[in-house]
Computed example of a mutant assay.
Amino acid sequence: MRYLLIAALTLCWMIVGTDSQAQLRQGYTLGDVVVNFSLKNVDGKSVSLGDFRSQRGVIIVFTSNHCPFSNAYEERLMALNQKFVQQGFSVVAIMSSDQTAYADDTFEQMKERAKAKNYSFPYLLDDTQTVARAFGASRTPQVFVLNQANGQFVLEYTGAIDDNPQDQAEVQRQYVDEAVSNLLAGRPVQSPITKPVGCAIKWKQ
């Protein structure tokens, strides 16, 4: 099963290619204040960025049901939330891909996956893709770590979750873990930009 997953991830990587530097520069850049947004959660309620102003920060993850990279990182995302939510950094997952492109990405499928996997964090639908465009997201999964200061959320890290999507046991750098740990300790993020590896977000025409 592990080898099938690795093969699927490799094939997906060959198809989606790599991000250009121009793509990585779109949207928010390090140090930018992120504008508040509000999206529908899988429980039917609206969740906004402002709901987290009492916390230290937020780990925004653009993801999707259909992408093998997102599926490979699912357990790691839940582990990140479990580790940091009590320290003031919550994971917030956002699905921004065109739902008509993949049956797995419909809102109903989002609800089913969140229930089946027992997500402990919000899973939001960005149906208009406005939030993904504002962030400059291009891949799933792609992470944006926001640090809260004086009621504003500032972008401190953007990129990959870690350095090995194929095999968690072979991970050498846990980028998001390192970024959040640095922020909690009052230190600057050592590697604030990494290249996201995953499936391309399918944009609406």
Rank of each mutant, 00 (worst) to 15 (best):
V16L: 03
G17V: 07
T18M: 11
A22P: 04
G27K: 12
T29Y: 06
G31A: 07
V33R: 13
V34Q: 00
L39G: 04
N41Y: 12
D43K: 09
K45W: 04
K45T: 13
L49H: 03
G50D: 14
D51E: 10
Q55I: 04
Q55A: 13
I59D: 00
V61Q: 00
N65A: 12
H66M: 13
S70L: 05
N71S: 11
A72F: 10
A72V: 09
A72C: 11
A79W: 06
Q82L: 09
Q82G: 05
K83V: 08
K83F: 04
Q87L: 13
G88Y: 04
V91Q: 00
V91E: 01
V92H: 00
V92I: 04
I94H: 01
S96M: 03
T100C: 00
Y102Q: 14
E108R: 07
E112A: 14
R113F: 07
R113Y: 06
A114V: 05
A116D: 14
K117S: 13
Y119I: 07
P122A: 15
Y123H: 10
D126S: 11
D126F: 08
T128G: 12
V131A: 09
A132W: 08
A137F: 12
Q142F: 02
V145M: 03
F153C: 09
D167H: 06
V176W: 02
D177S: 05
A179K: 02
S181M: 01
N182Y: 01
A185V: 00
P188W: 05
P188I: 05
Q190R: 12
T194L: 04
K195E: 11
P196N: 04
A200G: 10
Q205C: 00
